[in-house]
Amino acid sequence: MRASTLLSESLAVLGKELTAELRSRVALNAIGLFGLTTLIAVAYQIGPYQIQEQDRPYLLSALLWIILFFAATSGLSRVFVKEEDAHTAKTLRLAARPLAVFAGKYLFNLILLSALFSLIVPLYCALMSYRVRGVAGLAVVLAAGAVALASTSTIVAAIIARASGSTTLFAILSVPLVLPLLVMLIQGTRAAAASAELAAVLPALQGIVSLGGAVLTVSVYLFPVVWHD
């Protein structure tokens, strides 16, 4: 019998990720710089005044998620790829339960995404004069989006780390899984921007939460297979 509990093991993995990340800052730098660069390029070249009034709800919500998604793609696959690159994967595999590894890495990616969202979204709203009527609605959509995006990217990262470990493969495998999610996130953001009612984001939110939940549930079963084989 194991003396450690799943929770303490997961937290140990998360703690290790955070300590290592705070010392190297590779993922934070990659995601933050990628996000800021695309944001500045968009804000500088398009800005608030280059978009026709009737197009604003559509373009602004889509642009926001393009920036967020591509910034996230540059950093989220690292959680597993770095373990394989540094040859620590096998050491970790032998020491920890697969579920604890998945939970720790998932939470770490969730924290990274939350950091990215809280950096980019306010800046984006300010630079693009994006008036969001339902701030609470947007916050809920963003939170659900972080939960769902973290689940797809964590399991896909686990798969590609065991394959070639390339970011290209990460993008190829993520796109078909993430596309429906991105569409729903853009719809949810558009709904939140247009209405102060929390109920406005509900249709998109249902889709986002159920997709994220489904992927997370399946990942819990698939991860041990991916991690061990």
Binding site: V156, I160, L169, P176, L177, M184, L211, L222, D229
Partner: peptide, 29 residues
């Protein structure tokens, strides 16, 4: 693309099976 990227047969089989299941779960959405 995933199958091409994994030289080990046993690993290729289980990784692609995992991906297929994952893709199937997201398709209904």
């Amino acid at each position: 693309a995933l199958r091409e990227a994994v030289p080990d047969e046993e690993r290729r089989a289980s990784l692609s099976a995992a991906y297929a299941i994952l893709a199937f779960v997201t398709m209904p959405f």
